[in-house]
Simulated scan of single mutants.
Amino acid sequence: MDAATVIRTAAIGDLDAMVDVHTQARTAYYRAGGLADAEFADPAEHAQRIAGWRQAIGGGRHLTLCAVRGERVVGVLSMGTPNEGVCELYQIHVRPGSWGLGIGGRLHAAYVAALRDAGAPYGRLCVWERNARARAFYACHGWRADGQRTPGPGGTEYLGMRLAAG
C-alpha cells in the first residue's frame, strides 16, 4: 500500500491536472496498443475530456476521485451512481510515471467500497481490447468479461467486464 498517496473527492480546481493524467494515460495505452498518434490525438477529443471531467466533478451523477502525492494529482477515477443495480466504473487513470506504486489499486478499492455502500450487486466497465495492462489489472481485481462489445479506436473493440460486489 502506498501511504504517501491520498485518495480524495475531486474538486473543480483539480480539473486541469485530472485532464493531464487522463491524457498521459490514454496516450500511453493507445501507443502501446499500436495506434498512431493521429488516430487518438484529435484536439476535439481533448476538449471533450475537459468537458467530461468538468461535468463529472460538478454533477451529482458521478463519484469523482483524485489520487494525490504531495501536491500532484497522479490518478483519477470516475464512476456513476447506481442505476438498476449497477455502478458503472467509467475510468481509472494513473499518470504513467506513477505506475507500479499501488495507486490504481487504491482507486479501485475506493470504487469497490462505493459499490458496496450503494448496495449494488455488481459493477460494470468497458476496457479497450488492446489495453493489456488494464485488462490484466481488472482481471487481477476479480473482473470478468460479460460478453458486451462496443466499437473502439483502431478497429479494436471495447470489452465489457463485470465485478460482483460480494
Results as ranks from 00 to 15, higher is better:
T156G: 07
G60A: 13
P151C: 07
G59C: 06
R54P: 01
R106K: 15
C66I: 07
A139I: 02
A145Q: 02
G70Y: 14
P82Y: 11
D37Q: 15
V6T: 10
G52K: 05
D37V: 05
A110P: 05
A120G: 14
G60M: 05
R149E: 14
T81K: 10
Y29P: 05
R116A: 12
V127S: 01
G52W: 11
G160N: 04
A67E: 00
G123C: 15
W53K: 08
D20Q: 07
D20A: 12
L101T: 11
G119D: 13
R61G: 04
A139D: 08
A25T: 02
A109T: 14
D37L: 08
I103V: 15
P82D: 08
E84M: 08
A67D: 03
G52P: 06
H22K: 02
V86P: 01
G147H: 02
A109K: 06
V68R: 05
Y138S: 00
L65N: 00
Y111G: 06
A36E: 15
A109V: 15
R116M: 07
L107N: 04
A56P: 08
A4V: 09
A134H: 05
S98P: 05
A134G: 13
P153R: 12
N131H: 03
D146I: 07
T81W: 10
G75W: 00
H62S: 12
R26T: 03
Q148I: 13
R69D: 00
G75M: 00
V21G: 00
L115P: 09
A10S: 09
P153M: 12
G102K: 09
Y138W: 01
L107D: 01
E84W: 07
H93G: 06
I57R: 04
V19S: 01
Y30C: 04
R162H: 05
A164Y: 03
G105W: 00
P82I: 10
G33A: 10
W143D: 00
C66F: 04
T5G: 06
S98Y: 03
D117V: 10
R61W: 12
L65P: 01
G59Q: 07
D117F: 11
R61E: 11
L107I: 14
A17M: 07
G160A: 06
L89C: 10
G75V: 01
R135D: 00
P151Q: 10
Y30V: 00
D37T: 12
A44T: 14
T81N: 03
